[in-house]
Amino acid sequence: MALTQQLARVTLEYLGLCRETALSAVDGDPHWDPPDGDTLDLDWAIWELLTFYRCMRPGDRSISVIERSIEGDTRDEIGFLDHLSVYDGFGDPPALVTPTAVAEVADELAMLDIEPLLRTLPEYRTAGGFAGSSGDPHTYLVEHFAQLRNFYETAAARGLAVVVWTD
């Protein structure tokens, strides 16, 4: 099974309900089930974008912005989501980006321009980047970055938190 980057837009109230459910359940199951329209599967695209940045533009400010968008800020507040019904236990448990932080991330993502990086694709591929990719990595990265940006923009506009995890 392939690992993919997952995100969910949720209210703090929903997280509170999941916390209460987990605390009262014998097995700790939070009954995590965010609406399909508020979830996003980024496949491995953003991880590859980060690898690409680190190789071609180490130290670029974009790296920390993108990392924050998929790594979150804290796990403490949502430790109850560290459950097999939420994620398979590979890697770190889910992390939270609070509504205030979501607005910050959305603003930072809106300011990023990945096109200058994408112009280095031929050099990156020559160096072995995207070795297993059979499609057009430019299109793949642009589409998934746009999805990430739009996801955060919508979450910020709606005042929602974002939960991130690998599954």
Rank of each mutant, 00 (worst) to 15 (best):
A110P: 14
V164F: 10
P93N: 04
W165Q: 00
R75S: 12
S133A: 11
H144L: 02
W47Y: 15
L49N: 09
P94T: 11
A155G: 12
T21M: 03
L112V: 05
A131H: 12
A155T: 05
D29H: 02
I114Y: 09
L141K: 04
R149V: 05
D82Y: 04
T166Q: 11
D107I: 00
R75Y: 06
G129L: 03
D27H: 08
A25D: 13
V10P: 00
T139M: 08
T166H: 04
S64F: 10
R61F: 15
P99C: 07
A161Q: 11
D29I: 03
G132W: 14
F90G: 06
D92N: 08
L12C: 05
D73V: 14
G89V: 05
E143W: 07
T4L: 08
C18H: 01
V142K: 13
M111E: 15
F52S: 10
G159A: 06
P137H: 09
A103I: 02
E48Y: 03
D92V: 01
R149A: 10
I70C: 12
R54Q: 14
D33G: 10
F130D: 01
L40W: 01
D88L: 03
F151Y: 10
F90K: 11
L160E: 15
I63H: 04
F145H: 07
I114S: 12
L117G: 12
E123R: 14
P34I: 01
T166G: 05
D92Y: 07
T74L: 08
S133R: 13
D33K: 10
L148T: 00
R9C: 09
A131R: 13
A155K: 04
Y14R: 14
E104M: 06
D167I: 11
G159C: 10
V10N: 00
S64E: 15
N150C: 06
A8R: 04
P34K: 08
G79C: 06
V142E: 03
F145W: 04
F52Q: 08
V102Y: 02
D136F: 09
A2R: 14
A25F: 05
S62G: 12
T120R: 13
A127D: 11
I63L: 08
G89W: 03
L96I: 07
G135C: 06
E77M: 04
E20P: 00
A2F: 12
P116F: 06
E104R: 12
D88Y: 02
E13S: 15
G91C: 12
L117A: 06
H83F: 06
L40A: 11
W165V: 01
D113S: 15
A131N: 09
M1D: 09
A155N: 05
D38G: 14
G89Q: 03
R68L: 13
E48R: 02
P58V: 09
